[in-house]
Structure formats: structure tokens, C-alpha cells
């Protein structure tokens, strides 16, 4: 008996050691990512980088649901657009609304909308969940087309970037970039924290075997709803920031294409990891840009579709997942 329990505590200690080693590895990856993003504007055009960061945040938010809760939302464009339009409207209409206030309000609006969507859809499973989120997002799209203050088909233009804390002129692209970077990091670290937290464990359990989670006393809909609301809020944050960066809110953001695009980004990058959606967003934004410059401009959608099919059929783990697998195989 004594020997056995000594053995148990040994195993337990090694499990904790292992986790700490994993945490350190994660921190290293974070620091490398941070270093790259800090120096990136020296090499690449800041506006292009900001576009990537906005979509990366959008995809990270989306992946909290798909990758870590097992929910496929087909309506995330609604949150991106609600964030963007709310911020755009407030900043263009009221001179005394600061940029920070505009972004916070946009995020709050998307969070509230997320709560509404969530309450309606969270009991649904699989394809029904996807279809109802799509239907609700279409309602938001039509609202944005029809409402008197959104600029209809044209969207909203000339949204002022303003000053950060009333001091830093965000018209300066470098300043704007570091502001966007800070917001992106906030979202990224928040999601990282969530998925490793005690709550994140329950989300994982729900994703892997929902009936079992229920039989262990979890009211799974509450857990899913919280994840949905946080995801919607962060997607709204991405939309708000995007509106400030490009000084416009466009109907494209509300279109179901956008809901599809974020799925594409997440799957291409890899759903199983945090970094996957970031890499996927960078990949898709870059590819779209490169293609739009050349002779293949009319083929962007077809090419992305082809890559999507290839990913689903042959590289289920996405770019980051496949690289991880490769490293694991070759480092042991």
C-alpha cells in the first residue's frame, strides 16, 4: 500500500511537471509571435498587417466555438458587422465619442446580439445550429441594408480614426498598428486563458462527448452560451477595430460570404490550436491580396474553394496542425 501511494504521488508530480513544461513552451511561442508582430511594420505595410490582425482576431474568436466547444456558427459575420457599424455610426455621428468609447460600444453591441443569437440557437445541434445562426445573420444583413443610418448598399465611409486617449493621433499608421496589435493580443490571450481554464476543460468535455458531460451534472447549454457570447463579443471587437482602421463599415462584413470566410480561415490554419486561425487568416488575406493583383483576380473564390476542399479532404489538422504533427514525429 505504501509503495503504491508513493508511486501515485510520483505520477502526479510528473503530470504537473509536464503541464508546466507545456506552459513554458506556450509562453515561448507567444513571445516569438509577439516579437514578430512588433517588428513586422518595419518590413510590411502596416495597413496590410492591420487587416491580417483584424481577421486573425475574428478567426480566433470564431475558433473558440468551432475548435474548443464544437459549435459551427454560420452567422459570425453578423457580429463582425454589428461591431463595425456601431463603432462607425458613433464615431461619424458624435464628435465627443472617443475612439476607445466607439470600439467598446461596438463590442458591447455585438456581445448583446451574441446573447440574443445564443439564447435562440444554443439548444440546437449540428446542422440546425449552423442553419439558424445563418438565418439570424441574414436578418441582420437585411437590417443593415434597409436601416436609414447605415448608408445602405454603400456602407459607411469617412469614419474618423480619432485620437487614442485623446493624445495619440491614430491617423498615423504606425501608431494605429500598435493599437490594433494591443487589442489583438488582448483577444488572443483571453481566448488562450479561457481554453486552458477550468471552464475550458468543461468546454472540451462537451465537445468530445456531450451526453456524458450532461450525465456528470453539467448544464451544457449554459457553458455553450457563455462561450458563444464571448466569441460574439470578440468578433464584434474585431469588426469595430477594422472599421476604425479602414474608416469604413461595409456590407461585405455582414454578408454570409464573410461567415464562410472565417470558417475557411480557421480550417486552413487548423481548428485544434490557438495559432491556427491566426495563420489561416494571414494565409487567406495574403492570398486574396496576391491574387487580386494578378491575372487570376476573377478566380479568387474558386481558388479559395479549391484550397478549402483540399484542406477538408487531405489536411484535416490545417497548416499549424500538420506542422505540429510533423514536429512531433521528427523530434521524438
Amino acid at each position: 500500500m505504501m509503495a503504491e501511494s508513493a508511486n501515485a504521488s510520483e505520477i502526479r508530480a510528473s503530470i504537473v511537471q509536464q503541464r508546466k513544461a507545456d506552459d513554458r513552451k506556450k509562453l515561448m511561442v507567444n513571445l516569438v509571435l509577439l516579437a514578430l508582430l512588433l517588428v513586422a511594420p518595419a518590413v510590411l505595410y502596416p495597413v496590410f498587417l492591420m487587416k491580417i490582425l483584424c481577421f486573425a482576431l475574428f478567426a480566433v474568436a470564431f475558433n473558440l466555438l468551432l475548435g474548443f466547444t464544437g459549435l459551427l456558427s454560420f452567422g459570425h459575420a453578423a457580429f463582425l458587422a454589428t461591431g463595425g457599424y456601431t463603432t462607425g455610426y458613433l464615431l461619424s455621428t458624435y464628435a465627443n465619442v472617443t475612439t476607445e468609447m466607439g470600439i467598446i460600444a461596438g463590442t458591447a453591441a455585438a456581445t448583446l446580439l451574441g446573447l440574443f443569437f445564443g439564447l435562440v440557437t444554443i439548444r440546437r445541434q449540428g446542422i440546425y445550429f449552423a442553419m439558424i445562426t445563418l438565418a439570424l445573420a441574414q436578418l441582420v444583413f437585411f437590417f443593415l441594408v434597409q436601416a436609414p443610418f447605415t448608408g445602405g448598399e454603400d456602407g459607411m465611409h469617412g469614419v474618423p480614426r480619432g485620437y487614442l486617449f485623446g493624445l495619440i493621433d491614430l491617423q498615423n499608421n504606425t501608431a494605429m498598428y500598435y493599437f490594433v496589435l494591443a487589442i489583438f493580443l488582448f483577444g488572443y490571450i483571453l481566448v488562450q486563458r479561457i481554453v486552458t481554464s477550468p471552464y475550458g476543460q468543461i468546454l472540451k468535455a462537451i465537445k468530445q462527448n456531450e451526453p456524458r458531460a450532461v450525465s456528470l451534472g453539467y448544464n451544457v447549454n449554459q457553458y455553450k452560451l457563455i462561450a458563444f457570447v464571448i466569441s460574439a463579443g470578440l468578433a464584434g471587437l474585431a469588426g469595430s477595430v477594422k472599421t476604425v482602421v479602414f474608416q469604413l463599415a461595409s456590407l461585405n462584413d455582414a454578408h454570409w460570404h464573410m461567415s464562410g470566410e472565417v470558417i475557411l480561415m480557421t480550417l486552413i490554419g487548423g481548428t485544434g490550436t490557438l495559432l491556427g486561425p491566426v495563420v489561416g487568416a494571414a494565409f487567406v488575406v495574403n492570398l486574396e491580396y496576391q491574387l487580386s493583383q494578378g491575372a487570376l483576380a476573377d478566380w479568387v473564390d474558386a481558388i479559395l474553394g479549391g484550397i478549402f476542399i483540399l484542406t477538408v479532404l487531405a489536411f484535416r489538422s490545417g497548416i499549424v496542425g500538420e506542422i505540429q504533427k510533423f514536429l512531433k514525429k521528427n523530434l521524438h
Partner: peptide
């Protein structure tokens, strides 16, 4: 996962994994 059900931290999304 089963123990967490009664442990009261299952909604704590801000806590570290080490707290388990």
C-alpha cells in the same frame, strides 16, 4: 471533469489550468 462538477470552479474562465 466529474470532480469539477462539485468543485465550483467550472465557470471560472479566467483561472489558470494549474488551479485544477
Amino acid at each position: 471533469i466529474a470532480l469539477q462538477s462539485f468543485e465550483g470552479s467550472s465557470f471560472h474562465f479566467w483561472k489558470s489550468g494549474g488551479s485544477l
